[in-house]
Amino acid sequence: MAQSIVKEFTKGLWAEVPPFRLVLGLCPVLAVTKSVENGIGMGIATTFVLVCSNFLVSLLRDIIPAKVRIACFIVIIATFVTVVELMMQAYTYPLFLKLGIFIPLIVVNCIVLGRAEAFASKNPPHMAIADGLGMGIGFTLSLGALGAVRECLGDGTILGNPVFGPDFQPFTFMVEAPGAFVCLGLLLCLMNLIGKK
């Protein structure tokens, strides 16, 4: 029992880490990872939504009629997303400004709906929480890693602290949209190389 919870939790960290292994939810992945801070902020917001919606969907899995399940999932997810949005506005306003439209867009993030449909609606609540937490943390770490590479090369900083000398010319391309694709591609390639061995 305990073992399977751990298994559900850890699969999200490496074996099925959302942006790299499942290649899901790429819209926020590409758009907000201009810096580590943005990436991790977005990851935490998504994790919260993922855990809460997984829990509630799993709790209601026997009550929700199969034919309207997607509508029910969306209502649940949208509720939690709006809660996150309001909370971010109230407590972490600068981050909210940076993430902007991508917070409400968590509603249509494939990972959240995907986990509700594929996992939470078929498993008991504690498993669903473990799954949501694992996936969420995996997502957060991926966004953080991507953000770190892009911020480092594109701005010459990590979390706002300069890492290179004052003579460093920022590689602005990396913080623009094309840089996101290039970075994602390189990290995917790296993960596949490591996974192969």
């Binding site: 009629p65 034919k67 309207v68 029910c72 209502v75 649940i76």
Partner: peptide, 8 residues
Amino acid sequence: MVVVLTVL
């Protein structure tokens, strides 16, 4: 269906 969706 109606009841569940409405309540939710």
